[in-house]
Amino acid sequence: MSNCNNNCQKYCCRCNQSPCCCPGPKGARGPIGPVGPRGDTGPANGLNAYGGAFYSNVDTILHLPDHNDKPLPLNSAMTAALNVVNSPVDSLTVKVAGDYEIYYYFSATIDVTAFVNFSVTVNGSPLSSTFQVLLPEKNLITGTVIVSLNANDVISTNIFGFTFINIKLSPYVSTILTVKKLNA
């Protein structure tokens, strides 16, 4: 310790040895090393299943028979889709299991004062949280619901009437159905 001065004593690496070895000034940065191997692919970021369909036509009238369900038409697939197909007719099929947000839109007018029930269905079974009633004064139905779906589940929109009813679909876009997988 006799060769160490008080200023560098706390920095000395070998103060019990002579001569004292206080650190010097910081040196220049060394060269960059080689790139390491590529790591494993991580979990998917963003949506890994999404898609939708809509119905677009002018002057379409649906004839809803007594006490019968009728699927709403979805004749056009949206251009962007991943793991969702517009099949079978008038429906969407998800190819990956998970939690999905389903968005639905329906616009039409009915020719009589009657109740027309609307619902989103999964494999033909209505989702009770999507039940809505179309009335002459209420001709727009829209909403979202979050549900767990299995691979190959089929989603559609249906209407049901208690008597024969003619339903005139709104011009241009009258029905929209989209799905987005929320979990990775």
Rank of each mutant, 00 (worst) to 15 (best):
Q9E: 14
K10A: 15
K10R: 12
Y11A: 14
Y11R: 09
Y11H: 08
Y11W: 12
Y11N: 10
C12Q: 02
C12A: 15
C12Y: 00
C13N: 10
C13T: 10
C13S: 15
C13G: 13
R14N: 06
R14A: 05
C15E: 05
N16Q: 13
N16I: 01
N16K: 11
N16G: 13
N16A: 10
Q17W: 06
Q17N: 12
Q17Y: 05
S18H: 12
S18C: 15
S18V: 15
P19T: 01
P19Q: 06
P19E: 04
P19V: 01
P19A: 02
P19D: 03
P19N: 06
C20T: 03
C20D: 01
C21G: 01
C21E: 08
C21T: 10
C22D: 02
C22F: 01
C22Y: 01
P23D: 14
P23L: 10
P23K: 06
G24K: 08
G24I: 07
G24V: 10
G24Y: 03
G24S: 15
P25S: 14
P25E: 12
P25N: 12
K26E: 15
K26W: 06
K26C: 09
K26Y: 05
K26A: 15
K26S: 11
G27E: 05
G27Q: 07
G27I: 03
A28Q: 05
A28H: 02
R29W: 04
R29Y: 05
R29K: 13
R29E: 07
R29P: 09
G30W: 04
G30F: 07
P31A: 15
P31N: 08
P31R: 09
P31L: 06
P31K: 10
I32C: 06
I32P: 03
G33M: 14
G33C: 07
G33I: 01
G33T: 06
G33P: 04
G33Y: 05
P34A: 11
P34K: 04
V35A: 12
V35F: 03
G36Q: 08
G36D: 06
P37A: 13
P37D: 08
P37Q: 13
P37T: 05
P37F: 04
R38Y: 09
R38F: 11
R38A: 14
R38L: 14
G39A: 12
G39L: 03
D40G: 00
T41R: 08
T41S: 05
T41W: 00
T41C: 09
G42W: 00
G42V: 02
G42P: 00
G42N: 03
P43Y: 02
P43C: 04
P43M: 02
P43I: 06
P43K: 00
A44G: 11
A44Q: 03
N45R: 10
N45H: 12
G46L: 13
G46M: 12
L47S: 15
L47Y: 15
L47G: 06
N48S: 14
N48G: 02
A49V: 09
A49Y: 01
A49R: 00
Y50N: 01
Y50T: 00
Y50Q: 08
G51M: 08
G51Q: 02
G51F: 01
G51C: 11
G52C: 11
G52D: 00
G52V: 08
G52H: 01
G52N: 02
